[in-house]
Design a protein around this nucleic acid. Structure first.
Lengths: 345, 345
DNA sequence: GTGAAAGCGCTAACAC
DNA sequence: GTGTTAGCGCTTTCAC
């Protein structure tokens, strides 16, 4: 005897329930959902009424199992708490939603081991595609991804030697550019405040930016800048204190380059608080312009990275790939932009 | 004949493949994965070797289908681009990860219709729980949720009459508190700059905050403040311009209350830029302290909302509920905090 | 235009 | 301790 659930509990309401309710077969209901034009008008209306009456919600787990296609895209970013990647996530989300995909978001905390763990866990969902931040991953992560045969996009970095899809900017050039600008401004004694994340591997994006900074000094025939590292690059007050202490300890400095937006803004706030004149007494530059560089006074001279665009393009490329429009890996340099504000003269 | 895939493509590698490779039944492999102590040591090692050799990744779609439990929690927030909800998401993510759940994130753009759409789509994944922002939803959304029988938590608002789990703060009180503070400061002519989102329903959180503000004026026997609305409450420059124009048009103002952090910060920047002395000439207050209120100069006097805590508790309560520890709905008032900075005297 | 059968990968329930 | 059977909800294939 029929056992379809009534309107008060669709928790188990299946195609079969709807089929019984409408007096047709499950297949017909499935067709109404997926290829309605292959169903007679009268049948369709009958089925749609039952669909409504039972409050049917398709079970996408069954769908995934049968179709070997989940409609899920995984994206992993280093942090979601800080706003660095907020607009990237928004960009990804917008594109995926329009294309009918759902977003499974992971947060790696800048930790490749955690990225590996998440990759393993997420692959269980049989995602149709994966967006990763950066081009550095553990060997196991790479193996897992390759093994799974899922198309991937690496974002927020750029390398034309990459075999994967890759959307971002050249972190080395970004570092080079801000340093070049500061040197051309005529600053004589520039200090560098940077994160320590880069100890891991030279592939890291922060390490690339530092490398670019050093290269600009070399090309200008200047000695490498004195450097101080911050331990928690997202803690703005701590960053500011470190930067200000660094300046205080090196009276010859006329400027500092900070390797991130948070660092730069923290430095401006703290130096300002301690009575240093910016930019007269000390110039400050940063890298990154997500949402706070323009708020402090004076504003932070920095490198603007089009995060939303990176997210959008990453998702777009993945979607195109899934539609089969592209077979070759795409490497896309989104570029960046020098933004000069009041923190430099 | 056996057809298990080799190491280069696990795309289809199933329990059965692993079982054949190890010379056992699929059930035994399943046991090694789920209840290893019920398997003989020797068998276990053999199976684990095969698991490794084939790079087996469990298919969670099949798991979900069979177990009627997906291990997925859905969370929906109004925006992911602005940092308002960033730490809430981080809080949710931290707790869920520790509890072994995956997070499916949705962004409603402050739109209840979109929330309904997303709800429908996400329910297809058979999530084990759902976290929603606010207590206002369309009737259909409510019906869908009820019908699905999924435990839910509503966050970022608080109502002790709510039949659902609810974690947040009293938006009305938050509005009341900032207005009360400004009145007690001795400001005589206060303007109100607010968002227009509240046109929808009086349930909306922004509308509640406004209602609280008006109530504070009434309780102080003051007439309702003059008010101006901003159209895009997330566009900081536009917000600032609107606020500054409002002040310029009403020379009698000695202070303004802004209904959000972005508004408040935008106002300070723009007023400062136009040469208004803050707080001497004009006081500025806001609501919200996600990450920028303390960066402008002077800092914004505002209401700090513990977003991360809200996210953590929301996820915790959901997880407890899923473990069966609680049956009754929990309403938890996380509270808020008045933060006085330089923008008020 | 519609339906019946089979099977995606997994595990609960029951043998042995 | 291990294997067999059945079925979760869906769609592909083929039959009518």
């Amino acid at each position: 005897m029929a056992t379809y659930k009534n309107e008060l509990s669709n928790a188990g309401s299946s195609l079969t329930c709807v089929a019984e309710h409408a007096g047709v077969s499950a297949m017909t209901v499935s067709r109404v959902l997926n290829q309605p034009n292959k169903v007679a008008e009268a049948t369709r209306q009958k089925v749609e009424a039952s669909l409504d009456a039972l409050g049917y919600v398709p079970n996408l787990a069954a769908n995934t199992l049968r179709r070997e296609r989940s409609g899920v895209i995984v994206a992993m970013v280093p942090t979601v708490e800080n706003s660095i990647f907020s607009d990237t996530i928004q960009g990804i989300s917008d594109i995926l939603e329009a294309a009918g995909y759902q977003l499974l978001l992971g947060c790696t905390s800048y930790d490749l081991e955690k990225e590996e763990k998440l990759t393993r866990a997420f692959l269980g969902r049989r995602p149709d595609g994966i967006i990763l931040t950066g081009v550095s991953h553990t060997d196991t992560t790479r193996a897992l991804l390759k093994n799974a045969g899922v198309p991937i996009v690496e974002m927020w970095d750029f390398s034309d030697q990459c075999s994967e899809n890759c959307v971002g900017f050249d972190n080395y050039k970004a570092g080079y550019e801000i340093a070049r600008y500061m040197l051309e401004c005529g600053y004589e004694n520039i200090g560098l405040v940077a994160t320590t994340l880069e100890h891991e591997a030279h592939e890291f994006r922060a390490a690339k930016r530092s490398a670019g900074i050093y290269a600009a000094f070399r090309d200008a025939n200047r000695p490498a800048p004195l450097r101080r590292n911050v331990s928690d690059p997202l803690a703005i007050d701590e960053c500011g204190a470190t930067a200000a202490d660094f300046v205080a300890a090196n009276p010859e400095f006329d400027a500092i380059i900070c390797s991130s937006e948070v660092l730069g803004v923290g430095a401006i706030k703290e130096l300002h608080g301690r009575g240093w004149q910016i930019p007269e007494k000390i110039g400050v530059a940063g890298i990154g312009d997500a949402n706070i560089a323009g708020l402090v006074h004076p504003g932070l001279t920095t490198i603007k990275i089009p995060g939303k665009r990176i997210g959008e393009r990453s998702a777009e490329i993945l979607v195109e790939r899934l539609r089969g429009s592209h077979d070759l890996a795409i490497q896309e340099d989104i570029g960046f932009q020098l933004v000069v504000r009041g923190s430099t003269k």
